[in-house]
Design a protein around this nucleic acid. Structure first.
Lengths: 242, 242
DNA sequence: CACGATTATATGTCTAGACATATATGTCAA
DNA sequence: TTGACATATATGTCTAGACATATAATCGTG
């Protein structure tokens, strides 16, 4: 333990290069638009081959921290859009993460031929059968959210035999439909009579609404509306780039 | 145009490899947990060197589509958390993107020594001076959102001389504070008297609330609360992985 | 059978080259 | 001044190797 740099761990070189550059960007030392040293300059500075600095810069480019332009060089990117990563975990995970006990209750489940309203809600022209589900999630036995869901059986036929009395449809889908794409819409409403009763809140109390449409390879899978008591629930999102 | 594959464009090899694998994952052909062919197998299949397949796999790993384990191989990742990318653009962009005209109005601006409440809101122990701002954004001359903001001048001293009567504080900060990290909290409330008047809605109407705390390298910069009419405004988020 | 030591292997990182390609820039003519 | 053309250069991709390292699997031993 004499000659070697006494740093206990030894981060690899390309990671060190990447971290060095990232730090200068994040601290503002290299503001948006600033040109990163050329690859051959970094080669000289770190005493390594071009592939090594290239790997560091490529990862920064993939992470949208820098922009690479042929012949011109690499530049610090201007924070493009203020975007936030909103974690919308499956309901059980969301509640247990808060240190509360999770409860689930199926209110109703109906398998039916798709009505015009169903097709409209799922955004499809034709649909065979659908499952309509209403259920309630609770935390420490207090209503946490009510869920109103439609599943397109022509996309997920296995859902017909799933036991939604035992497992929430969100969890079931998460485990049986591998990769999806979706769109969320968040809005606010005030509770009507039915909602108020289901959530055990006052009529006219604010509610947070999440509408989620989920596809898999361009096939609609499910449409769901989640209603949360608006003053007690909070969606938290951490984000980077602003 | 005889021997060459007549594909007009020529995507590079590693991109083709990456796309091939990504497609099999996204279609579900390779479900979560499935082992990707070993690098040496892909080398043989595509007739290229190991660095080339390694680059493809590394990018998939960086994108969290696969997980790489030494000695074991590479595996399709289970969709880890249902996360959504929420685009919360700066207000002018958000409104003009809707094809509506943007209007801005400063309601008040006050520079003061930080009170205990201010420090609490900014989440800092000590703070010198702060700027408190209230303003209103409108779309086609209809109130769109009201903003209530606190800026920590010890982090952004330049803000003291900014003309917030002309430029919204959000835009100003976006252009003067290069990189930030932030946390968003979304909730719902019902409009009280003051809010109802500012947004020109009824008392008791639902409002969407976005609370945003912004840091730069561990320094608090600003805390802002945005209030939107809840039934007319919608936050839309597209996401992947579910 | 349980447990520790050994070995085989897939990934992780790196090199010193190579040619391809887009493009900023300078040159020269209209 | 402007537009067409040539050139230089930084990045983009790729190779055929190398050694490092974590760990799954195997082997031996008590």
């Amino acid at each position: 333990m004499s000659l070697a740099t006494n740093a206990a761990d030894k981060p690899t070189l390309y990671k060190r290069i990447r971290a060095d550059i990232e730090k200068r960007i994040l601290t503002g030392e290299w503001p948006p638009g600033h040109r990163i040293p050329f690859e051959h300059q970094l080669m000289a500075r770190y005493g390594c081959s071009r592939m090594t600095v290239n790997k560091a810069l490529s990862e920064l480019a993939q992470a949208d921290l820098i922009e690479r332009r042929r012949r011109a060089g690499s530049f610090v990117r201007r924070p493009q859009h203020m975007s936030a990563v909103l974690k919308i975990a499956d309901m059980r995970a969301e509640i247990t993460a808060l240190g509360r006990s999770y409860g689930y209750e199926l209110i109703h489940r109906k398998l039916r031929a798709a009505t015009a309203a169903d097709r409209d809600r799922l955004g499809v022209k034709t649909a065979g059968k659908v499952i309509a589900i209403a259920c309630r999630h609770s935390a420490d036995d207090v209503p946490f959210a009510v869920e109103d869901r439609l599943i397109d059986l022509s996309s997920v036929p296995e859902a017909a035999s799933a036991d939604f009395a035992r497992e929430p449809p969100g969890s079931w889908l998460l485990h049986h439909v591998p990769w999806t794409e979706a769109e969320h819409t968040i809005s606010a409403i005030v509770a009507d009579d039915r909602t108020a009763e289901a959530l055990d809140i006052a009529v006219g109390a604010p509610c947070l609404v999440i509408d989620r449409y989920t596809w898999r390879s361009a096939r609609t899978i499910t449409a769901v509306r989640l209603l949360y008591p608006g003053d007690s629930h909070r969606l938290v999102a951490r984000f980077k780039g602003g």
